[in-house]
């Protein structure tokens, strides 16, 4: 019963994140939404690990936290490079290539 609640929360977070990536226009907010999705997956791992009394899920979550940090670092650097050239962080304005 408890497990279902956690899984529901995780699914809700994941969907909020996915919808946010698609509808938000600010790159920084989009990155936050991606973090939300990763953490939804983490919550799901922890729930299953707790239910099964198995440590693998916990280990996986630690790996994901490290990866998410690296990803955020590179992502912010990329956004910064973009901002220096264009003075905007709006994804709708990234349209110089067409075809």
């Amino acid at each position: 019963m408890m497990m279902n609640n956690y899984l529901m929360l995780s699914a809700a977070l994941f969907v909020i994140g996915a919808v946010g990536v698609m509808i938000r226009r600010n790159v920084i907010v989009v990155m936050m939404c991606i973090e939300l999705m990763l953490n939804a997956a983490n919550l799901s791992f922890i729930t299953f690990a707790n239910y099964r009394h198995d440590m693998t899920g916990h280990a996986f979550v630690f790996m994901v936290i490290a990866v998410a940090a690296a990803e955020a670092a590179v992502g912010l650097a990329v956004v910064l490079a973009m901002f220096r050239n264009r003075e905007t962080v709006d994804v709708d304005e990234m349209n110089s290539m067409k075809g």
Binding site: A18, M31, E71, G75, S96
Partner: peptide, 15 residues
């Protein structure tokens, strides 16, 4: 632009 688009969609697919 290439980098940002790759980053957003790549991270989304990883999630």
């Amino acid at each position: 632009e290439a980098s940002i688009k790759y980053f957003i969609l790549g991270a989304l697919s990883s999630a």
